[in-house]
Write a protein that binds this DNA or RNA. Structure first.
Length: 1119
RNA sequence: AGUCUCGUAGCUCAGCUGGUUAGAGCACUACACUGAUAAUGUAGGGGUCGGCGGUUCAAGUCCGCCCGAGACUACCA
C-alpha cells in the first residue's frame, strides 16, 4: 500500500527540480498541447525578445502573465500552441557590434565590409540564447523553444516581403520625406538615440529675428482693416530658414492683438499682430505703452517708441490671412498659390516669441506636419534642380543652392566652413540686416538656447528633409480605431487612452532605416524613378532576375542570404530595358515583429490554412510591457488592419514595469538590478511568480522586494504545505486512499459542507477571474481561502476528527473533504504556481489515483458545482467565526485562558433567521471558545439595551439638508422609542416641526449592551460572557491543563502519535477533584493505559500546571 | 510639451454603482494558544485617503486645477 509522501520541511527549489525533471521525461508540455483537439484552439503570440541582451526579472514578470493564461486555457480544454521567437534585427544589435569592433557606422563599408559586418551581427544576435532558454525553463514558462521563429531567416523575410507587397498593391507604400536630424559635416542622418547622447545638446548663441510679414489687405478680417499696413510678427532662431517660409502658424484658441506702433529701425508707422499674452514682453525696453493717438503724432527718432493695442481677436479669426512672401528668392514647385497664408496648429504656445510660428516645412518636423494637415495643403519650399528633382533651398552639405542670389553657395551655419574660411557675417546675420533695411525686421537679438550637435563632428545638426518610404497608415486610421474598439485591453485605459489617442493622431509610418542589419526594402527603381517594382516573393525575385539576366546580359542568381550587401547587387530590368536598382533602405524592425503572426508560419508560402481558416490568427491573447503600446501592439494592429482588415489580437494585457523596492527603475548603473536566476534558485519559481502576480495588478508597476517573496513562501506556500503535511500524516496512519465510496455531501458534518461550499464559490470566482485576465484577484482570493478558511478554521476545528477514534464515517468524511480541497487547490493554483501545484497533485494522486493523468497540467480546470454552494451555510459559518472572535476577545479582557471552560455566553437575538443560523453552528462555537452553552436572548426580556442608527441610504434623499439633524435625533432615541419602532415598524420623526413618517427600513437597530455583563460588539452582533468559574469548571480546566502538559511531554519524548503510555502524577489536594471527575477523560485524550497518583514522585519532570501549582509528572511507554 | 498610469498606516495593497466610526497583510508591542509549530489567536499604537477648490444632505470615491513618481510620444518657433 502506497503512502502519501511526507517531508521534513518545505523546499520550493527542490520541488522545482523534481517537477522540471518529470516534465522533461514525460514531455508534459508537448502532451498538454497534443492532447487537446486541433479545432479548439486558443491562439497566443509570443512577442519575441532579443537574445542580444540578458534576461532580467521583468522578463519573469511578463512571461508569468503570458504563462498563466496559456496554462489556464489549456486546462479549460483549449489547444494552446506557443511558438517561441527571436527578434534579431535592429539598432541595439548594430550598436553592440560596433562597440565590440570599435567602429562607427561611417566605418562600415570602409574599415569593415558590409558582408563581415552582417556576419558579426548574425553571430552576436543569438549570443545569450542559452541563458534565455535556461531562464525560460527555470521559471516554468512553457513555450516552444525547439522551433522558434527567427526574424533574420529567409522564410521570415519572404513573408515580410509578401506583406509589403500587399501594402504596395493597395497603394499604401509611398516615398516621401521626413524632417530628420542630419549632420551636414558628417553627411549622415542621426537617430534620436545618437542625439540623446550626453553632451549633444549644448547652449549656443544665435542671431534671432522677429520678422514682419506684410499681410495682403483683401484677405484681412474686418476687425483688422482701416489701420493701414498690417504685419504679422513671427520669431525665429534660424533666420536661414526664412527664405523657405511658406506659412505662419497660430494657435486657434490663443488671443491675438493688433498693436499700433513704429518700426524701431526704420521708424515707419506699422500695425503688428502678435499674441496678447506676449505684448508686454515684446514691447519692453525701447517701447512705451500709450493710451491715445497723440503720442504717435509727436513721435520722433530717439524717443521711446509708443505702442497701443487697437484690436484683439482669437487665433481662429486669423486663419486664412495671406501675406507677401518675406524673401522672394524662390517659389515652391508645387501649388505655390497655397503658400504664404496663416494656418492653425495645436503646438503653438505663448511661452516665447510672438505666439505665431514661422513655418518652413522643409526644415522643421512640426512645420512639415501642420503644413500637410492644412486644407489645402501648404506646399514645402522645394524647387526643381537641373535634373527636375525637387530639392530644398539648402543642399546636403548645408549650403544654399544656386539661384538664390547672394545667398547661393553660402553655408547656413558658419560652423560648417573649413577652419578659417568662415565669413565675418553669418547667413543669419546677413539676412537680419537685409530685413532691417527692408522694414521687415521688428526686432533682431542674440539669443542663447539649447541646440543639438552631432556627436561625431561637434557641429550643429540641421533638421533636414530626408527621403523615406512610408506606409500610409493615416489612410486606415478610422478602420484601426474601429477595430481597436473590439479589442479587450487590460487595463482598458491603455486601449482607450494611450493607444486610442495614438490612433486618432496617427501619422504615416516611416518605414525607412539607413542601416545594414535588417530586412531590405524589396523595391527596385530605375534611375529616373519612372518605373519601380516591389518584389513579394523569392519566386518573383527569381523570375525578375532571369528577365534581367537575359535583357542586360548578366549572370545573377537569387542570393542565398536576402540581407545586404548581397541583395543590393541584384539589378532588375524595367519594361524599357533600363536597369533597376534596389532602394537602399532597410525597413523598420517594428515591421518585423508586427509581421510575426504570418511570418512565423511562413505564410502564405506555407501553412496557408492556418491564417485563412483563422486557426492561428488572430491571437486570442497577447501580453507584453506597456512600453509596447506604440511598438509591437501597434505594428501588429496596423499590419493586420491594412492587410487582413482584421484585428491581430482579441485580448491584450499590457503589464507595468518592475521597479526596485524603492520604486526606482532598475539599472546596471545604480546596481539595483535583481538577478532572476538567483531569485528563482533561492526562493523557487512559484513563490516568485505568486508574489509578482499577487502583489500588484500586472498593469501597475511592481516594486520588487525579495522580502515579499519570503512572505509569500511563509504565508501561502507554507500554510498550504502544512495543510498537505497534516493530511498526509493522518491519512497515512489511517491508510486513507480514497477507496471508500464518496460520502454524500449532505451526510457530512456542517463544517465539511461549509468548506466545500466555499471551495465551489472559490472555483467559480477564480475561473471567472482567469477568464477575465484578472490574475491578481484570483490569487488573492485563493490565498484568503487557504489561509483564513481552510487552514485557520477548517483544519484547526477539525483536527480532532483526524486523530481521534475509529476509522468512522465522520473521519472518512473529513479525509474526503480535505482531500478534495487540496486536490482542487492544486488545479486552481496550477496556472500561477505550476511546480508546487503539480507536486501536490502528484503526491495526492499517486496514492488516491483519482485522476487518470500524470500531471495537473494535463487535467481539467475544476468546475464549480452550484449544488454544493450554500450561501446560508457560508453566512452562518461567518457568524460562528465572528462570535468566536468576540468571545476570545472577552476572555482576553479578563485574562481567562481558553483551556478554562466557562459556562455560558449570551447573544441577543437579532432576528429569527439569525437565531436559526447561530443554533446550527452552536456546537462549533462552543468547542472553539470552550463554553458550555449559548443562550440566544430574545429581546422581550428587556435586559438588552439597544441603539438606533439612521439608514443614510434611504433617508438621505428624502431628508436632504435635515439629514444631519435626523441622524442626531435617531442616535439619541430612548429604549422605549426603539422598542416602539420594532413593534410597529413606524416612527414619526419631528425635525423642527416638520414630520417625516419613517419605517423600520430607515433604521438600523443594534443590540449594544447587556447591563451587568462583559459585552463585545461587532456590527450587528453582540456577545456577553458569563465569567463565573465554579468548582466544577475549575476542575475541568485543570484536567485540560494536565492533558496539555502530558501531550507536551509525549511530544518532547519523541513518542509516536499512536504510542500508548502510563502516566504517574505527584499527588496534591488541588488535583483531587480533577482526578475524581476527569480521570477517564484525561486517559483517553493522551492515550494513557493508566493514570497513577503517587505521593512523593521522584522521577519525571516538574511542570507548572497553573500559576500556583507546580508538580511532578512522569510519562513512560506502556507495553 | 502632450497622452496615459499611479499617489490610502512605517512597508505592500483592498475599498463595488458616493452613505454612518476608511480596512487587510507585513513590521512593532503585550498577552494567549499548541498532537500542523519557522504556524496561529486576541489586544494595542500607527491615517489632514498627495494638495487646493467645486458639485452634493453626504466625497477616499464624481468634476476642475496644482504637486509628486513613472511610462510612452514629440522635440519646439
Amino acid at each position: 500500500m502506497s503512502k502519501y509522501r511526507e517531508f521534513k520541511q518545505l523546499n520550493l527549489p527542490e520541488i522545482d527540480h523534481e517537477i522540471l525533471q518529470f516534465w522533461e521525461e514525460d514531455q508534459v508540455f508537448q502532451k498538454s498541447i497534443d492532447s487537446k483537439p486541433a479545432d479548439n484552439t486558443f491562439v497566443f503570440y509570443e512577442g519575441p525578445p532579443s537574445a542580444n541582451g540578458l534576461p532580467g526579472i521583468h522578463h519573469v514578470m511578463s512571461r508569468t502573465v503570458k504563462d498563466i493564461f496559456c496554462r489556464f486555457q489549456t486546462m479549460k480544454g483549449k489547444r494552446v500552441e506557443r511558438k517561441g521567437g527571436w527578434d534579431t534585427h535592429g539598432l541595439p544589435i548594430e550598436l553592440s557590434v560596433e562597440k565590440e569592433l570599435g567602429i562607427t557606422k561611417e566605418d562600415i563599408g570602409i574599415k569593415i565590409s558590409v558582408d563581415e559586418y552582417n556576419a558579426k551581427c548574425r553571430e552576436v544576435v543569438m549570443r545569450y540564447k542559452d541563458v534565455w532558454d535556461n531562464i525560460t525553463k527555470k521559471m516554468g514558462y512553457w513555450v516552444d523553444l525547439n522551433q522558434p521563429y527567427i526574424t533574420f531567416k529567409n522564410d521570415y523575410i519572404e513573408s515580410v516581403w509578401w506583406l509589403l507587397g500587399r501594402l504596395y498593391e493597395k497603394g499604401l507604400l509611398y516615398k516621401g520625406y521626413t524632417i530628420q536630424p542630419y549632420s551636414p559635416a558628417a553627411g549622415t542622418g542621426l537617430s534620436s538615440h545618437e542625439l540623446n547622447q550626453p553632451g549633444c545638446y549644448r547652449d549656443v548663441t544665435d542671431t534671432t529675428v522677429v520678422a514682419q510679414f506684410k499681410t495682403i489687405p483683401t484677405s484681412l478680417p474686418a476687425v483688422l482693416t482701416g489701420f493701414g499696413d498690417v504685419y504679422i510678427l513671427a520669431w525665429t532662431t534660424t533666420p536661414w530658414t526664412l527664405p523657405s517660409n511658406t506659412a505662419l502658424t497660430v494657435g486657434p484658441k490663443i488671443e491675438y492683438s493688433l498693436v499700433k506702433t513704429f518700426n524701431q529701425y526704420t521708424f515707419e508707422p506699422i500695425n503688428v499682430i502678435l499674441a496678447s499674452a506676449l505684448v508686454t514682453k515684446t514691447f519692453s525696453g525701447k517701447f512705451v505703452a500709450v493710451e491715445d493717438d497723440t503720442a504717435f503724432s509727436t513721435f520722433k527718432e530717439g524717443d521711446k517708441v509708443p505702442y497701443m493695442t487697437v484690436a484683439t481677436l482669437p487665433g481662429s479669426d486669423l486663419l486664412g490671412i495671406r501675406y507677401e512672401q518675406l524673401l522672394p528668392l524662390a517659389l515652391p514647385y508645387q501649388n505655390p498659390e497655397n503658400a504664404f497664408r496663416v494656418i492653425g496648429g495645436s503646438f503653438v504656445t505663448t511661452e516665447d516669441g510672438t505666439g505665431i510660428v514661422h513655418t518652413a516645412p522643409t526644415f522643421g518636423a512640426d512645420d512639415a506636419r501642420v503644413a500637410k494637415e492644412a486644407v489645402p495643403e501648404v506646399p514645402p519650399m522645394l524647387v526643381l534642380d537641373s535634373k527636375e528633382n525637387p530639392v530644398p533651398l539648402v543642399d546636403l552639405q548645408g549650403k544654399f543652392i544656386q539661384g538664390l542670389g547672394d545667398l547661393s553657395g553660402k553655408y547656413v551655419k558658419n560652423e560648417y566652413y573649413a577652419d578659417g574660411q568662415a565669413p565675418d557675417k553669418s547667413v543669419d546675420v546677413e539676412i537680419a540686416i537685409r530685413l532691417k533695411e527692408e522694414n521687415k525686421a521688428f526686432k533682431v537679438e542674440k539669443y542663447v538656447h539649447n541646440y543639438p550637435h552631432c556627436w561625431r563632428t561637434d557641429k550643429p545638426v540641421l533638421y533636414y528633409p530626408m527621403d523615406s518610404w512610408f506606409i500610409k497608415a493615416s489612410a486606415v486610421k478610422e478602420r484601426m480605431t474601429e477595430l481597436n474598439k473590439t479589442i479587450n485591453w487590460k487595463p482598458a485605459s491603455t486601449g482607450e487612452g494611450r493607444f486610442g489617442k495614438w490612433l486618432e493622431n496617427l501619422q504615416d509610418w516611416n518605414l525607412s532605416r539607413s542601416r545594414y542589419w535588417g530586412i531590405p526594402l524589396p523595391i527596385w527603381r530605375t534611375a529616373d524613378a519612372a518605373e519601380e517594382i516591389c518584389i513579394n516573393s523569392i519566386e518573383k525575385l527569381s523570375e525578375e532576375i532571369t528577365k534581367a539576366n537575359t535583357k542586360l546580359g548578366l549572370d545573377q542568381q537569387v542570393p542565398k542570404d536576402l540581407h545586404r550587401p548581397y541583395i543590393d547587387s541584384v539589378v532588375l530590368v524595367s519594361s524599357k530595358g533600363e536597369p533597376m536598382k534596389r532602394e537602399l533602405d532597410l525597413i523598420d524592425v517594428w515591421f518585423d515583429s508586427g509581421s510575426m503572426p504570418y511570418a512565423q508560419w511562413h505564410y502564405p508560402f506555407e501553412n496557408k490554412e492556418k491564417i485563412e481558416n483563422r486557426t492561428a490568427f488572430p491571437a486570442d491573447f497577447i501580453a507584453e510591457g506597456v512600453d509596447q503600446t506604440r511598438g509591437w501592439f501597434y505594428t501588429l494592429h496596423a499590419i493586420a488592419t491594412m492587410v487582413f482588415d482584421n484585428v491581430a489580437f482579441k485580448n491584450v494585457v499590457s503589464n507595468g514595469l518592475v521597479l526596485d523596492k524603492n520604486g526606482v527603475k532598475m539599472s546596471k548603473r545604480l546596481g539595483n538590478v535583481v538577478d532572476p536566476f538567483l531569485t528563482i534558485d533561492t526562493h523557487g519559481a512559484d513563490a516568485t511568480r505568486w508574489y509578482m502576480i499577487g502583489n500588484a495588478q500586472p498593469w501597475d508597476n511592481l516594486k520588487f522586494d525579495v522580502e515579499g517573496i519570503e512572505e509569500v513562501k511563509r504565508k501561502f506556500f507554507g500554510t498550504l504545505y502544512n495543510t498537505y503535511s497534516f493530511f498526509a500524516l493522518y491519512a497515512n496512519i489511517d491508510s486513507f486512499t480514497f477507496n471508500e465510496k464518496e460520502i454524500a455531501i449532505e451526510e457530512r458534518p456542517e463544517i465539511d459542507q461549509w468548506i466545500i461550499s466555499l471551495l465551489n464559490s472559490l472555483i467559480k470566482e477564480v475561473d471567472q477571474d482567469f477568464a477575465d485576465y484578472e490574475p491578481t484577484a484570483a490569487v488573492r482570493k485563493i490565498q484568503i481561502f487557504v489561509d483564513d478558511h481552510l487552514s485557520n478554521w477548517y483544519v484547526r476545528l477539525c483536527r480532532r476528527r483526524f486523530w481521534r477514534g475509529e476509522y468512522s464515517d465522520d473521519k472518512i468524511a473529513a479525509y474526503q473533504t480535505l482531500f478534495e480541497c487540496l486536490m482542487t487547490l492544486s488545479k486552481l493554483i496550477a496556472p500561477v504556481a505550476p511546480f508546487f501545484s503539480d507536486w501536490m497533485f502528484r503526491n495526492l494522486n499517486q496514492v488516491a489515483s483519482i485522476s487518470e493523468v500524470s500531471s495537473v497540467h494535463l487535467d481539467n480546470f475544476p468546475v464549480a458545482d452550484g449544488q454544493k454552494i450554500n450561501k446560508d451555510l457560508e453566512q452562518r459559518m461567518e457568524y460562528a467565526q465572528r462570535i468566536s472572535s468576540l468571545v476570545l476577545s472577552l476572555r482576553k479582557k479578563d485574562n481567562i485562558r481558553v483551556r478554562q471552560p466557562l459556562q455560558k455566553i449570551l447573544i441577543p437575538a437579532v432576528s429569527e433567521d439569525f437565531v436559526n443560523k447561530v443554533e446550527m453552528v452552536a456546537d462549533l462555537i462552543k468547542a472553539e471558545v470552550n463554553v458550555k452553552e449559548i443562550e440566544l436572548l430574545a429581546d422581550t426580556t428587556g435586559i438588552i439595551s439597544k441603539k438606533a442608527k439612521a439608514n443614510f441610504k434611504t433617508l438621505g434623499k428624502r431628508l436632504g439638508g435635515s439629514m444631519k439633524a435626523a441622524s442626531q435625533i435617531i442616535g439619541n432615541l430612548s429604549q422605549a422609542e426603539i422598542a416602539g419602532i420594532e413593534r410597529t415598524g413606524k416612527f414619526d420623526l419631528d425635525i423642527e416641526g416638520q414630520i417625516f413618517e419613517l419605517t423600520s427600513e430607515d433604521f438600523e437597530i443594534v443590540s449594544e449592551d447587556i447591563p451587568g455583563w462583559q459585552v463585545a460588539n461587532d456590527r450587528e452582533i453582540t456577545v456577553a460572557l458569563d465569567i463565573t468559574i465554579t468548582d466544577g469548571l475549575l476542575a475541568e480546566g485543570m484536567a485540560r491543563e494536565l492533558v496539555n502538559r502530558i501531550q507536551n511531554i509525549r511530544k518532547n519524548s519523541d513518542f509516536e502519535v499512536t504510542d500508548r503510555i502510563i502516566v504517574s502524577l505527584e499527588d496534591h489536594p488541588a488535583l483531587r477533584p480533577t482526578i475524581a471527575s476527569f480521570a477517564s477523560y484525561i486517559t483517553s485524550e493522551v492515550l494513557a493505559d493508566d493514570l497513577i497518583l503517587i505521593d512523593q514522585l521522584k522521577e519525571g519532570e516538574s511542570v507548572d500546571l497553573t500559576e500556583e501549582l507546580a508538580l511532578m509528572i512522569a510519562v513512560k511507554k506502556s507495553n
